[in-house]
Design a protein around this nucleic acid. Structure first.
Length: 216
DNA sequence: GAGTCCCA
DNA sequence: CGTC
C-alpha cells in the first residue's frame, strides 16, 4: 500500500449512515456541481423559481421550480404532482441526463438499484429560508427512495422519526453532498434549519437542493 | 377527511 | 444558542 502525498485525484466519496435506510454520500456531486448549476439555470429559464403557497395560506420561504414528467406544486388546494407548470400551463422541461445519471448512481450506492426518477424538485434557499419538518408522502410508491443533492452554501439537515414530535438528528450538508433515504426511513420527517449568510464560489449566498423522486 | 413543507 |  503506497501513500502518495501529491495525489491530485478527487477523494473517494464517503458514505455516512444517518439511520437505518438513510445515508449521506459525501461529495458525490461535487465534481459535477458546475454543470448541475448550469442545468438548473436552463430549467429556471423555462419555469422561473417561485415561492408557492401552503394549503394553510403561508408563503414558503424557499423558491421552487421543477423538471421531469411530474412537478411538485402546492397552493391553497393542497400538495400534488402535476405535469404542467401552474403559472404558464406548459409542461416542465425534460430532466437533464446528468440529473438522472447522478440520481441513479446515488440510489445504487445506497442500495437501491434501477432508480428512475420521474420528478426533480429544485429548491432555492437564500439566507433566512428554511424548510420545516415534513414527510414526502405525495408519491405513489414508497418502495422508491428519495435522492437529495445539496449545492452551494452549507446547511443543517434535520432527519427525524415517523412522528413530527420525534426529535430530529442534525446532519451538516455541504456542496456536493447527496442524501438518500428509503425503505424503513422513507416516510421519516425531515427538513432544514434556516440558511445562514455565507458565500460559495459557484452560487454566492445561494443554496440549491435537487430532490429526485418517483412520483408515479 | 387528514394532512397541510407555515408561524409565534 | 437551544427546546418545546
Amino acid at each position: 500500500m503506497t501513500m502518495d502525498l501529491f495525489d491530485q485525484s478527487p477523494p473517494e466519496p464517503r458514505a455516512e449512515p444517518i439511520c437505518e435506510g438513510a445515508i449521506v454520500l459525501r461529495g458525490l456531486a461535487r465534481e459535477s456541481g458546475a454543470e448541475l448549476l448550469a442545468q438548473i439555470e436552463r430549467v429556471a429559464g423555462q419555469a422561473p423559481f417561485r415561492q408557492m403557497q401552503t394549503p394553510g395560506g403561508h408563503t414558503m420561504s424557499v423558491a421552487m421550480t421543477c423538471c421531469g414528467d411530474w412537478g411538485w406544486v402546492t397552493d391553497a388546494k393542497g400538495y400534488r404532482y402535476q405535469q404542467q407548470d401552474p403559472v404558464s400551463g406548459a409542461p416542465w422541461s425534460n430532466m437533464p441526463a446528468l440529473f438522472r445519471i447522478l440520481a441513479a448512481d446515488a440510489a445504487l450506492k445506497a442500495g437501491y438499484a434501477e432508480f428512475e426518477p420521474d420528478s426533480c424538485l429544485i429548491n432555492r434557499y437564500l439566507p433566512g429560508a428554511r424548510m420545516g419538518l415534513h414527510q414526502d408522502r405525495n408519491e405513489k410508491d414508497f418502495d422508491q427512495p428519495i435522492v437529495s443533492v445539496s449545492l452551494g452554501t452549507p446547511v443543517t439537515f434535520q432527519f427525524g422519526g415517523m412522528r413530527r414530535s420525534d426529535r430530529p438528528g442534525r446532519v451538516p450538508l455541504e456542496h456536493g453532498d447527496v442524501v438518500v433515504w428509503g425503505g424503513p426511513a422513507r416516510l421519516r420527517y425531515h427538513g432544514v434549519l434556516t440558511l445562514k449568510a455565507a458565500d460559495h464560489p459557484l452560487t454566492g449566498a445561494c443554496r440549491y437542493n435537487l430532490t429526485f423522486r418517483r412520483a408515479r
